[in-house]
Amino acid sequence: MSAISVQNLSKSFRIKKQTPGFSGTLKSFFKPDWQDVTALDNISFSIERGERVAFIGPNGAGKSTTIKILSGILNPSQGEVNVAGLTPWEERQRLSYEIGTVFGQRSQLWYHLPARDSFTLLASAYGLDKDTYASRLSQLTDAFDIADLLDKPVRQMSLGQRMRCEVVASFLHKPAILFLDEPTVGLDVSAKSVIRDLVYETSIEDGTTILLTSHDTGDMERVCDRVILIDEGQIVIDAPVSKLRSSYISRKIITLHMSVSDISFEMQGVEIAEKAPHKMVLNVDTSQQNVSTVIEKALSLASMRDISIEDPPMEDVLRSIYKNGQG
């Protein structure tokens, strides 16, 4: 049985339209304009136990809405959802033992108290007995390296430290499924990578099913094996992360380190992305030009100290997917 299954899920909201200007203010005061907005439009997917799935897409795509429906916070307008064998919004309390949630912008830790107090509270909420709690906490404390943070008031922690504690708080009751909504938002590069690695490792160890939403493609690449790309309430792509590049990229980045300071390079399907003395970065459209042909030509023009061939960053891949989707 799959951990999560979603069938024909739809969700729409009703929002008030604001009109500019004083007369607009007065007009909408007496007669507001309501507008229906579709956040999710008939989406279906299923996630197996232990799978790690990234939910990505631009702002307002419907990522958070989906996660809120799956964790029982929101009711859908239509469709069937099954999480850990339960219908989230109907069996919220039973579901709460099965899932953990991390909302990047909302804390479950008490601001003025040490993190340990919040953990104790959560242990009591989930009815963990003393021994189970103690061993679980020490296991997570080691894994997340928060021994020094346990007795420090949360308000004195950096955002990265706080987020590590937030994730520990969510893992405490060993949930079968963990939802992470923008877990790395606002963190610096090193804090981001720490969180990603820890989530990844712990989920492997516990066999946790992960569903995370993010703006940051790094989260998806480092933590997840599958990606669901959503835009305007619809699933655009549902594929393994590794396949995303090969199927959707028709570009390679070639960096040339030349022994001469400059060469003039012109070729169909090749763009010069960056140029500096002894260095040139080429953006190759592989549907028009073979990579080996490009390198041969470069070698014929000058001798090279070094040549590297890379895939474009994931950000660019997604951008091109959005563009094609819209076009």
Partner: peptide, 9 residues
């Protein structure tokens, strides 16, 4: 702020 206030009728 005036507009905002009127908006929350």
């Amino acid at each position: 702020s005036f507009d905002d206030h009127m908006g929350h009728r």
